[in-house]
């Protein structure tokens, strides 16, 4: 396992913001870089722990896949679900253009 990374930079924060689909102003970028650095710095206290051979815990319960009988049953009411959407076309969710202009 590698050690903790170097201090987080504004470029790192800009990248994660883009990945998470968040637009930041220059001011926000500076603010969040400092705040995220402080939280990550605090997390350094676990860096010194001897963790080789310790299994990670993803979940408190030892759960396996939970399956049910493959039997059709009623789902949510389609009209009610579509009524909650910002934009619909017929019985579908409508979204803005996904592909760019053709060359």
């Amino acid at each position: 396992m590698g050690g903790m990374a170097e201090r987080i930079t504004p470029a790192d924060v800009a990248l994660v913001a883009r990945l998470a689909r968040l637009a930041l102003t220059a001011e926000e970028l500076e603010l969040y870089t400092g705040q995220l650095a402080a939280v990550l710095e605090h997390a350094r206290d676990i860096e010194a722990l001897e963790l080789d051979g310790v299994e990670p815990t993803a979940h408190p319960l030892p759960l396996r896949n939970v399956l049910r009988e493959d039997v059709a049953r009623p789902g949510l009411d389609r009209a009610e679900v579509l009524a909650a959407a910002p934009a619909v076309e017929g019985e579908r969710f409508a979204v803005p253009r996904i592909l760019g202009e053709a060359p």
């Binding site: 990374a5 990550l40 676990i46 860096e47 722990l49 963790l51 310790v54 990670p56 815990t57």
Partner: peptide, 13 residues
């Protein structure tokens, strides 16, 4: 590994 993976191991401890 450095962050999430370590944190999950601490969770086991």
């Amino acid at each position: 590994d450095a962050y999430y993976g370590k944190a999950q191991r601490v969770r086991t401890l």
